[in-house]
């Protein structure tokens, strides 16, 4: 029975988190930026579940559960905001929504 070291899971989680940060920094479509945030949340969830395995406790699963609930609430409000922005500005480019700067 071959086994997988814990560190592999944590490294995978770090790689996914870094990719999420990359999407957050380099993309300009507000929906894609939002999806990058979801990717980061997923990466953190993987760490939580891995720690839960290491400690043989169920608490990490509970944190993942709460992250999912918060992500659902966040998606509902965030997408409603994106819809409003699109209705008012006719754009999804995150750099063009900057009238607060001037």
């Amino acid at each position: 029975m071959s086994t997988v070291p814990i560190s592999y899971f944590l490294t995978l989680s770090a790689v996914l988190f870094a990719l999420g940060v990359a999407g957050f920094l380099f993309r300009r479509n507000v929906i894609t930026v939002f999806m990058s945030i979801e990717l980061m949340l997923n990466a953190v969830n993987l760490s939580f579940v891995t720690f839960s395995y290491q400690l043989k406790k169920v608490d990490g699963h509970l944190f993942t559960f709460f992250v999912m609930v918060v992500a659902a609430a966040e998606a509902a409000v965030g997408l409603a905001i994106i819809l409003t922005i699109f209705k008012n500005r006719k754009t999804l480019n995150i750099d063009e929504v900057d009238s607060m700067k001037d």
Binding site: P5, S7, F9, T50, Q54
Partner: peptide, 11 residues
């Protein structure tokens, strides 16, 4: 990760 979990459980 490599530094802190060298001898952790294998999954």
């Amino acid at each position: 990760v490599q530094r802190l979990f060298p001898q952790a459980d294998e999954v």
